[in-house]
C-alpha cells in the first residue's frame, strides 16, 4: 500500500486544486467546483465496486437517493418537517441533526439497503448481476416517487439546509478518495481484482468471491450515499428524478471514460467530463452579441457531451487512464519510481 502513496498524494492534490480554484475564482466557479467534487464522491464510490469487481452496477443511484432522503429526514428544520412530511415516525419528527449527524444516519440507512440487495447481487454473475441492480433502481425509484408521505413523491422536497459548499465537498471527496484507495490496495481489493480477471481461478485459489464482492458493494453504496447527501445539502432541493437514469448515465460515463480499472481513472473522468459539460453549458446557455441576444438552445449541451464521449471511447476504449495511476514524481515514498 505504501508503494502507492504517490498516487493518493497526486489525487488528493487534484481535489485540493479543484477546491482552491473554486474558492479563488468567485461564486459561479465555486458552485461548479463544488458540484464536480460531489460528483467525484459518487464516481469514486462506483469505482470501489465496479472498478475492482468488473461487475457493472446500474443501481447505485438508488443509494444516493436513499442516503439523501434519509439524511434530509433528520436535517430538515422541525417546522418544515411537520408541514412537508407529517407522517415520519415521531422520533424523527422530533429530532433535528446537523449535517454530520444527518449524513451518518443517511449513510447507515443506505448501507443497510446496499447490504440487503448486495446479498442478492453477489449471488449472480456478470450480466445477471447488472440487470438485478437495474431492477433494484427501478424498484427504489417507483417506491420513492409514490411514497408521498416520506419524499413528497414526484414533487420536490425543499428546505434542506444548504450547508455544503466547496470546502465540505472537498472534505467529502478526500474521504471518498481515501476509502477508495485503502480498499483498492487492501487484501480485499486485491482479491476482488483477482476475481475480476479470472473468477474461476480466484475461486480455485480460495478467494471467497461472494463475500469480498459484498464488502465492496456495501462500501461503494455507502460512498455513493455520501455523494447523494452532499448533493442534497448543496442544492437544498431533492427530487426523485434527480437520482435516476441521467444520474446513472453521467456517473457511469465518468467512470468508464476515465478508465474504470484505476482510482485515477475515476478522478480524471470526473474532472474531464465535468469541465466539458460546464464549458458546453456556458456555450449553449445563450449569450449576448452587442445588443443581440442569442437564445439558449435546449439539447445542444447534451448532444455535444454525447459526441465528445463517443469520440473519447473510440480513441481510448479502455478509458483515458487505462490501467495506469497518476503518481507524484519525486515523492519520498516513491519506491517504484
Amino acid at each position: 500500500m505504501r508503494a502507492n502513496l504517490p498516487t493518493l498524494a497526486a489525487l488528493a492534490l487534484v481535489v485540493l486544486l479543484i477546491a482552491g480554484v473554486g474558492l479563488a475564482a468567485g461564486a459561479v466557479i465555486e458552485r461548479v467546483a463544488a458540484d464536480m467534487l460531489i460528483k467525484l464522491v459518487v464516481v469514486l464510490g462506483l469505482s470501489v465496486f465496479i472498478g475492482n469487481s468488473g461487475v457493472l452496477s446500474f443501481g447505485h443511484a438508488s443509494f444516493a437517493a436513499l442516503g439523501a432522503y434519509s439524511s434530509a429526514w433528520f436535517t430538515l428544520p422541525l417546522t418544515a418537517k411537520k408541514i412537508f412530511l407529517p407522517k415520519l415516525p415521531a422520533f424523527v419528527l422530533g429530532t433535528q441533526l446537523g449535517l454530520p449527524g444527518g449524513a451518518a444516519a443517511g449513510i447507515a440507512f443506505a448501507s443497510f439497503f446496499a447490504l440487503v440487495i448486495g446479498l442478492v447481487v453477489v449471488r449472480l454473475s456478470g450480466i445477471a448481476a447488472s440487470i438485478a441492480t437495474l431492477a433494484w433502481l427501478a424498484i427504489v425509484n417507483t417506491v420513492l416517487a409514490n411514497a408521498d408521505s416520506l419524499t413528497k413523491g414526484t414533487s420536490s422536497l425543499v428546505g434542506l439546509p444548504m450547508v455544503v459548499g466547496v470546502k465540505t465537498a472537498a472534505l467529502g471527496a478526500l474521504i471518498a478518495l481515501l476509502a477508495a484507495y485503502l480498499f483498492r490496495f487492501s487484501r480485499y481489493g486485491l482479491m476482488l481484482r483477482a476475481s475480476r480477471e479470472d473468477e474461476a481461478a480466484a475461486l480455485a485459489s480460495g478467494i471467497p468471491v461472494r463475500s469480498v464482492r459484498l464488502r465492496a458493494f456495501v462500501l461503494s453504496g455507502a460512498i455513493v450515499a455520501l455523494g447523494g447527501i452532499l448533493q442534497g445539502h448543496f442544492l437544498g432541493v431533492l427530487s426523485v428524478g434527480q437520482f435516476y437514469f441521467e444520474f446513472t448515465f453521467l456517473t457511469l460515463a465518468m467512470l468508464v471514460m476515465g478508465g474504470m480499472r484505476s482510482v485515477s481513472g475515476a478522478v480524471v473522468g470526473t474532472v474531464v467530463i465535468g469541465m466539458v459539460s460546464e464549458l458546453l453549458r456556458i456555450g449553449a446557455g445563450g449569450f449576448m452579441i452587442g445588443d443581440l441576444a442569442v437564445p439558449s438552445v435546449p439539447g445542444i449541451r447534451e448532444i455535444g457531451l454525447a459526441v465528445i464521449m463517443l469520440g473519447v471511447l473510440m480513441a481510448r476504449p479502455r478509458g483515458i487512464m487505462g490501467d495506469r495511476e497518476l503518481r507524484l514524481p519525486g515523492w519520498p515514498f516513491n519506491t517504484r519510481g
Binding site: L56, I127, L252, A253, M257, M260, G299, I303, L310
Partner: peptide
C-alpha cells in the same frame, strides 16, 4: 463498429451516449 472489440462496459457507455445523443436531438 469502432468499439466492437472493447469490453462490455465500453460498449454499454457507447450505447448510453448514442441514446443520450438521439434523445436530445429530438428535444432540439
Amino acid at each position: 463498429r469502432p468499439v466492437r472489440d472493447a469490453d462490455p462496459a465500453t460498449l454499454l457507455i457507447t450505447s448510453f451516449a448514442v441514446s443520450y445523443l438521439l434523445q436530445y436531438a429530438l428535444v432540439l
